[in-house]
Design a protein around this nucleic acid. Sequence first.
DNA 1: CTTCTACAATTAGAATTTTCATCGTGCGAA
DNA 2: TTCGCACGATGAAAATTCTAATTGTAGAAG
Lengths: 225, 225
Amino acid sequence: MKILIVEDEQQLANSIQTYLTGNDFVCEWAANAKSAFDKITTYEYDCILLDLMLPDGNGFEILKELKRQNKTDGVIIISAKETLETRIEGFNLGADDYLTKPFHLSELLVRIQALIRRKNFKGSNIVSFNEIEINILSKTVGINNTPIDFTKKEIDLLLYLVGNKNKVLSKSAIAEHLSGDMADMLDNHDFVYAHIKNLKKKLNEAGSGDYIKTVYGLGYKWQHD
Amino acid sequence: MKILIVEDEQQLANSIQTYLTGNDFVCEWAANAKSAFDKITTYEYDCILLDLMLPDGNGFEILKELKRQNKTDGVIIISAKETLETRIEGFNLGADDYLTKPFHLSELLVRIQALIRRKNFKGSNIVSFNEIEINILSKTVGINNTPIDFTKKEIDLLLYLVGNKNKVLSKSAIAEHLSGDMADMLDNHDFVYAHIKNLKKKLNEAGSGDYIKTVYGLGYKWQHD
DNA sequence: CTTCTACAATTAGAATTTTCATCGTGCGAA
DNA sequence: TTCGCACGATGAAAATTCTAATTGTAGAAG
């Protein structure tokens, strides 16, 4: 895990570096905007800690450049400015997190770890489980190395169930999950029956039967070891 | 805006209260778990600041009670404990945010404001704009007081455009927004054309023409004052 | 001004998602 | 055990979303 620290105060940069190195990260340091520019265009980092106030330029310029290069994933802004505006501008430019100075190093560590977890999950397009292998991007599922086509909603449902294995998920929870953003509550959730049925059917045909259990009155669960 | 401060250190509670009152919030203070219990079952708060370590009980107990009462929306945990575990447990119990002591009061304010914005946006199902009024729940849109039916994706697109008025949104950004979770990048985004066309058509028929401008080579924008 | 190219609009149709009506089944009460 | 009822399953139709093929057009280049 490689981290770039863009920060002009040497004291702070040093203590961050020491702390992170002690937690198995590899750190590099850029003390000004120019140096930061050079590094981000040349190397790849898992995470960039970006101070907004630099001696030779504004951190937002760097953020814009990162956005142009499509590398905003993994940026944590570190700033003493704490107005809502700068915060919002940071997020709009694609930063992932925002930390106001002064902060605890442990707080920083937690956020870096959370960010890397998010990033990895987002980056990897394969989720596998027993004889089942799901490729989220291509919307295909392999069962015992035979490819099966599922629709987007079917994969979504499958992942939701698998991700909560041995836990009962209510019909309304599933409905909310599948329908994405818009909240429901008073809506019709019967389409869940249809998706459950289709998913069960396709799994059966592929030989992966009986993972999905109906729990009468409560919902469904993915049952397994 | 009413805020409950659950915190046993009087010094801290006082300074929070003073600061927030100065920023147009109404504050109440609970110095222990028992008092907090009484208040949350009796009154409604827009936001609850919850210290985890209290003289007569653990803050998690209060959080559980809030969950049981379905009032977890608006809880910010304030704690000196800063392990990943307590943090995760807090989020699992439905807390909205987590702040480690010591913190800046301005940081707290920003978070409260962000939280209340989220909460309001989530709670309200009506978004209105000029002669257009959108009810997210019923998936209906009124234009000049005439109801028009849009599909879910059409409303989604409409809201996305309106929410970014006068900003150009690229085709791929729109595609990503509409398709929900799954990341694309290398995928076909032509379905955006279809939705844009349908939306334009329905808006036109309702007499609200010409808000959506095509910006050649860049995307689309909702143009307005 | 004409041509060329890349992007956008349009249309029809395929695939998916959702709704609706009907039927089957588990579980509690008599 | 049998009945009744609420919940789940099913199949087919309706609605929506997405794809694919075609046509139209803005803007750059000659």
